[in-house]
């Protein structure tokens, strides 16, 4: 693992970009890593483009400036790629993971990527509808992120996320089960 990995999440207000960044950081912490997770604070409102960020490192993270050159970019809403420059700042060798029904080759063409940036796609919207019953693409994208990058131990992440969800949805076990299934399916179905 690189000494410091930086991740940027793109979503729309209400899709859970912030929650995903927090859940991921929590899971990384549980695996003994140092973490930071923070949202971009602007005039956020339901449906408007928002971003959030993670930093993951094996050493204490002293840096407190914004993430400018993320190693990994995750896009929760496929319509964002028309309005937001999701590849902004990604260095060569970086990774973009998009929630879309399209293939990585199509997305590569759409974004005009010719260099060594790796593209992964997964239909997290459909997966979440089929497993959770609602379109909540953030948790399945955690599964896709780990499959695409190997940045955390998958089983450990699932266990930790389960624990976090159990606290939040004590009275709704079906929500917990649906989210875990969504993560597992996205892990299996993500394409490169």
């Amino acid at each position: 693992m690189k000494e410091l990995t930086e991740i940027r999440w793109h979503g729309r207000g209400g899709q859970g970009a912030k929650t995903a960044a927090l859940l991921f950081a929590d899971a990384a912490l549980a695996q003994g890593l140092y973490v930071q997770a923070f949202p971009e604070y602007g005039p956020e409102r339901m449906g408007a483009p928002v971003a959030s960020f993670d930093r993951i490192s094996s050493k204490p993270i002293l840096l407190h400036s914004g993430v400018i050159n993320p190693d990994i970019v995750i896009v929760l809403d496929p319509t964002l790629i028309d309005t937001v420059d999701v590849k902004e700042g990604i260095p060569d060798g970086g990774t973009i993971i998009i929630n879309t029904e399209k293939s990585p080759a199509d997305i590569k063409k759409e974004l005009g990527i010719s260099g060594s940036i790796k593209i992964y796609t997964v239909d997290a919207s459909r997966i979440s509808k089929e497993t959770i019953g609602r379109e909540i693409p953030n948790t399945p994208m955690l599964g896709a992120l780990i499959k695409a990058t190997g940045i955390l131990d998958f089983n450990g992440m699932v266990e930790d996320t389960k624990k976090k969800l159990e606290k939040k949805f004590k009275s709704k076990p079906e929500v917990i089960e649906g989210n875990i299934k969504a993560i597992e399916r996205a892990y299996k179905e993500v394409k490169s």
Partner: peptide, 9 residues
């Protein structure tokens, strides 16, 4: 925000 809303270990 930088610290108040940033999650850290």
């Amino acid at each position: 925000f930088i610290i108040s809303h940033g999650m850290e270990r």
